[in-house]
Design a binder for these strands. Structure first.
Length: 115
DNA sequence: ATGCTGACGTCGC
DNA sequence: CGCGACGCCAGCA
């Protein structure tokens, strides 16, 4: 059988981690990927998010950005501005589709959950 | 199976 | 983090 980390269950893992991200914080695809043990395939995390819009309970995909703190996936929101607006409402500074104080807003599951 | 694409990351320049 | 290249996994024609 396949590795759960690389199969559909992997999607559930991604959603679970993203839902743990507190308001006013954000994490990256790569951080989630590494936390789940797939390290090199951050792309697969993004793919998982692609299907997150129909998942119950809802996944705060707007709290997931690339490792530079840029809203790389904002174009996939409805409307696209929703991602930035949501972050702003949560107290995250977002200018020009880029999270300010990224190193402070960044929420690393591997670090926050292993304490 | 093969080739291309994609919400990414790392390395090199 | 400006740009290019390669690697990674999943989905689709």
């Amino acid at each position: 059988m396949k590795d759960p980390r690389l199969s559909a269950d992997f999607f559930e893992n991604v959603y679970a981690v993203v839902r743990l991200v507190p308001s006013g914080r954000a994490t990256s695809y790569g951080a989630i990927a590494r936390y789940l043990g797939i390290g090199s395939s951050a792309r697969t995390v993004g793919w998982a998010m692609n299907a997150s819009h129909a998942v119950i309970p809802p996944v705060p995909a707007h709290r997931v950005v690339n490792r530079l703190g840029m809203l790389s996936g904002k174009a996939h929101f409805h409307p696209p501005e929703a991602m930035q607006q949501r972050l702003l409402e949560e107290g995250v500074e977002v200018i020009n589709d880029e999270i300010q104080n990224w190193n402070r807003v960044f929420w690393d599951p591997a670090q926050e959950l292993s304490v």
